[in-house]
Design a protein around this nucleic acid. Structure first.
Length: 205
DNA sequence: TGATAGATCGGCT
DNA sequence: GCCGATCTATCAG
């Protein structure tokens, strides 16, 4: 079979919008094993998602909790788009918008396994070991050159960034745990990771 | 591995 | 003003 970017061609088809139009706790584990295909700097970067977190409307840990604001506008928009925010004065984090238009829910992408474009990622991150290139939400955005200029882009149509089919991870290969870096909403076990993957961020679930 | 401090600024109270 | 869906360096064990 043809392997355009180091993966079978069939895995590069974008996920349909209907995939994202579900509650985030349902979409988040289903994103594991999917591929991020990023076109930047004249080349194509590919990474396999290994860790995600769900954020819902009515969830005190979610940016959407206090309602619609200029920052969270995209989160309340139609599913299948990218929500990027800036935090701690220096980091960007990226989310996939989920649920129905108007819902205010999203899935934070926390870690991925680098598949293609390792050298470009190493260059942007200033790190050599593959295990550390994409292991954390801000590391992921830095390596893939994602910032607020990509806020709101369509992940189904592309072309800047696409979430492709990849190969979904079986339920018994998924670890569930507490979300990281929050002080409220800890009762919702909405962190999902590929069991045993060395590309997952710490603390390990 | 675990705990801790510092960096640095936009968003919202 | 306060604090954050974080990261890195550094120190202790």
């Amino acid at each position: 079979v043809a392997r355009p970017f180091g993966v079978p061609a069939g895995q590069l088809a974008p996920l349909p919008r209907s995939f994202f139009a579900r509650p985030s706790p349902e979409v988040a584990p289903d994103l594991l094993g999917r591929l991020l295909v990023r076109h930047a700097g004249g080349e194509t970067l590919v990474a396999r998602i290994v860790e995600t977190e769900a954020y819902e409307e009515g969830d005190p840990a979610s940016h959407s909790y206090r309602g619609r604001t200029p920052r969270t506008e995209v989160m309340f928009g139609p599913p299948g788009h990218l929500y990027v925010y800036f935090t701690y004065g220096m980091h960007h984090c990226m989310n996939v918008v989920t649920g129905k238009d108007g819902a205010g829910s999203a899935v934070l992408l926390r870690a991925a396994e680098p598949i293609r474009g390792l050298d470009a990622m190493r260059h942007r991150r200033g790190v050599e070991v593959p295990d550390r290139l994409l292991a954390g939400p801000a590391r992921l955005t830095q390596a893939l050159d994602v910032d607020r200029t990509l806020n709101g882009v369509d992940l189904v149509a592309g072309p800047d960034l696409v979430v492709a089919r990849g190969r979904p991870v079986e339920r018994d290969r998924v670890v569930v745990g507490r979300r990281v870096g929050i002080r409220v909403g800890l009762d919702r076990p909405w962190r999902f990771a590929v069991r045993g993957s060395r590309f997952v961020s710490s603390p390990r679930p």
